[in-house]
């Protein structure tokens, strides 16, 4: 049976119908058409499907879509403002923090959740924030360096 689901996606109201019990990943990709969210393991272990639900990082492949009714969801498609890249995206480029790029959407969202919460993170904070996200190319060091760079580059809020 189809259920109607409505939530905010990257600051826009969206609504769709989905099978009851669908996961958020399928609803975002197939229902809404936001292909910036990637599916990796479909069991909540790789982290590439990470999105923010009310500011908190969530594994969309193991999140019930219906539980997101009325909530605010952020995906990597909403990171840049027009032509202006988010500081995390710029830092990932400059640090060569991706090879195949499959983990990058999840890495960016996990890092954004951290920087939104903690604008001046330590290296340990960054490691904690991305330790649920698997990368098989970079050895993580360029990613950690990029997140720390982005924190330094972001305009300070008091």
């Amino acid at each position: 049976m189809k259920t109607s689901i409505q939530f905010r996606l990257n600051d826009e109201e969206v609504a769709t119908f989905a099978d009851s019990g669908s996961n958020l990943l399928d609803v975002l990709r197939e229902g809404i058409g936001d292909l910036s969210v990637k599916g990796g393991c479909w069991q909540g272990t790789c982290g590439t499907c990470t999105v923010l639900v009310d500011g908190m990082p969530r594994l969309s492949c193991v999140t019930l879509a219906e539980s997101c009714e009325g909530k605010s969801i952020e995906t990597v498609a909403g990171l840049r403002q027009g032509a202006k890249l988010h500081p995390l995206q710029t830092a990932f480029m400059e640090r060569f923090a991706a090879q195949c790029g499959y983990c990058t959407p999840g890495m960016l969202m996990a890092a954004k959740a951290l920087l939104d919460r903690e604008p001046n993170p330590t290296r340990e904070n960054v490691v904690d924030a991305i330790c649920g996200n698997i990368c098989r190319c970079t050895g993580y060091e360029p990613i950690i360096a990029a997140v720390l760079d982005a924190a330094r580059a972001a305009p300070r809020r008091s």
Partner: peptide, 14 residues
């Protein structure tokens, strides 16, 4: 069989 069981170093192991 999967990422839970086939272990590789995480960001805290580098």
């Amino acid at each position: 069989r999967d990422f839970n069981e086939y272990l590789m170093p995480g960001p805290g192991d580098i």
